[in-house]
Simulated assay, not measured.
Amino acid sequence: MNAPSLTDLGLRPFFQQQLSLEELENDALGRVIEHHKSEVVLLAGDDVLRFRLPPNLDPVCVGDWVLFNDQRLLRVLERQSLFQRKAAGSGRERQLIASNIDTVFIVSSLNEDFSLNRIERYLALAKETRVEPVIVLTKVDLCTADVETIRNQVQQLDSLLSVYCVNGLDSNDIAALKGYCQRGKTVTFLGSSGVGKSTLVNSLLGHSEMETGAIRDQDSKGRHTTTYRTIKWLPEGGLLMDTPGMRELQLSDAKEGIKLTFADIESFAEQCRFKDCQHHNEPGCAVNKAIETGEISPRRLENFQKLLREEAHNSASLAEKRVKDKAFSKMVNTVQEQARSVKKFK
Rank of each mutant, 00 (worst) to 15 (best):
D8Q: 11
G10M: 10
R12M: 11
Q17D: 14
Q17G: 14
S20T: 15
E23L: 04
N26C: 05
D27N: 12
G30N: 10
H36A: 06
K37G: 03
K37L: 12
S38M: 07
S38H: 12
V40D: 03
V40K: 02
G45T: 00
V48R: 15
L53G: 00
P59Q: 01
V66W: 10
L74F: 05
L74N: 06
R79I: 05
S81P: 02
L82D: 00
L82E: 00
R92A: 09
T103E: 03
I106W: 08
E112Y: 05
L116W: 11
N117D: 13
R118P: 15
I119G: 14
E128A: 10
V131P: 00
V136K: 07
L137E: 08
T144Y: 01
V147E: 11
E148M: 08
T149E: 13
T149H: 06
Q156V: 04
D158P: 12
D158A: 10
S159P: 02
L160S: 13
L161D: 11
S162K: 13
V166I: 15
D170A: 15
S171I: 13
N172Y: 01
D173H: 14
A176P: 02
K178S: 12
Q182H: 02
Q182K: 12
R183K: 15
V187D: 04
F189H: 05
S192Q: 13
S198Q: 04
L200W: 05
M210V: 10
A214K: 08
I215R: 11
I215H: 03
I215K: 10
K221Y: 01
G222C: 06
H224S: 15
T225F: 09
T227E: 13
T227W: 08
T227Q: 11
K232I: 00
E236S: 14
P244E: 07
Q250D: 04
A254C: 15
K259M: 12
T261A: 14
I265Q: 05
C272V: 06
H280D: 10
N281H: 08
N281C: 07
E282R: 06
G284R: 13
A286Q: 08
N288W: 01
T293Y: 05
G294E: 07
S297W: 04
R299N: 15
L301F: 02
F304M: 14
Q305K: 15
K306P: 00
E310S: 07
A312S: 13
A316P: 02
S317K: 13
L318M: 00
T334P: 06
T334A: 12
Q338F: 04
Q338I: 09
A339R: 15
S341D: 13
F345M: 12
